[in-house]
Design a protein around this nucleic acid. Sequence first.
DNA 1: ATTATAATTATTGTTAACAATTTATAATAT
DNA 2: ATATTATAAATTGTTAACAATAATTATAAT
Lengths: 233, 233
Amino acid sequence: MNEQAETTDEWIYDQVFSAVLEQRLIPGAKLKESELCEVFDVSRTIIRRILLRLSLDKVVELRPNKGAVIATPAAEDVRQIFAARRLLEIGIIDDACKFCAVADTQALKDIVARENTAIQTGDRSGAIRLAGEFHVRLAGVARNKPIQELLRQLVAQSSLALALYEAPGHLLCVDDDHIDIVDAVTAGEAVKCRDLMTNHLAKAEAEMKLDAPPGNNDLKSVFAEVIEARATA
Amino acid sequence: MNEQAETTDEWIYDQVFSAVLEQRLIPGAKLKESELCEVFDVSRTIIRRILLRLSLDKVVELRPNKGAVIATPAAEDVRQIFAARRLLEIGIIDDACKFCAVADTQALKDIVARENTAIQTGDRSGAIRLAGEFHVRLAGVARNKPIQELLRQLVAQSSLALALYEAPGHLLCVDDDHIDIVDAVTAGEAVKCRDLMTNHLAKAEAEMKLDAPPGNNDLKSVFAEVIEARATA
DNA sequence: ATTATAATTATTGTTAACAATTTATAATAT
DNA sequence: ATATTATAAATTGTTAACAATAATTATAAT
């Protein structure tokens, strides 16, 4: 591929963005400017520029005078995120089937292969990131940059949503959804592919409980049950 | 409405963004930092932050060490912009019909009314801006922020596309497309509404000649025909 | 006269100091 | 002891000086 010399800005941005995708940075995590400066050995100007970009991606929240934190999407936000993903990811399938070249199929299969390796290795971070990468790369097959860019943001936001609302005790389970989708796209079977994607996204959203619980690392809600039990005893 | 005290940043951003929507700033226009500083009476930090935001909207191009200019979308970009708009604007219609409240209908009708006034007054800038506002506000009815935000960007980019590729001699013509769409959405007639929108967007894209001509304020292409005629004479 | 080169000016990019705000700590009073 | 206020430290926001790059003008050579 085009060994494009990445700028410092881009590299640092990618590092933080990847950390979000891999859930090494979870909602609510503080992003202190001075710390980021030390970690990446750059001035505050650079860091502030990157934090602004991440905030426009809705991956970081910029609280005036109070610093940046990893965003905590509300339940309603998550519903909209998934509704948007359905619209985009199902909507691009016709074009994806139309344009899918051998290089595309190869790239997608490579991602799925690495994803499965990660799952079998117990590399949760890698698995999450590669699953997201798959969806973004698939959108790339449809040759529409604005759509792909929005999906890139939505996938990152989905990682945050997962960290907040994923049903407890849910482990990484290998499934063939991604492989099946690659095959359908390669074969140009748009109808089948849309069905697969619809099911796949529904499954992902179903794994989350978007009802009452607002956050999970909030102490009040974490201990709410025990306190209540003790009070009524 | 919520008389939300707008920050300085937001205000300046809106001013530049509006100028693009109204084609008072056209593709290629230089945005010199020092000039913007004088105009808005703020420091360069503020201006640079706003230019970064506009560049992420793909409305401004940031050329390293060479300053910012209003973006010049290529023909292929414009195709993707319109493809994305079709996907989004048709895709949200079901939800728009589902959620459309009286306040929504009212807001939409108000925009259309002002748009027609602008057309009859010969206020081209206003007409273009309000047409765009209509599409963004309609997306708002579907209650999906990520989609609406992308559409906001795409509408601004469409203004640039129009400035570059609009068929010459094309004047503002009143048509009832927008009114019809409001009525269909209000009545909850999703199928009809999708047809109307499909036609409306097709019409808009058809008004542009996305073939050979790359730009229009490029001297070479401007004088290409006369030079050629003289050479063969 | 025209091109090439060098010096100058203007513009963008970065750094570091300063100001304003918030958070943490210490002192005081109830 | 607990709550409240005052003080100090830390953090964010802004400004202005400095450095690096690009554009312009002036000079010299063909």
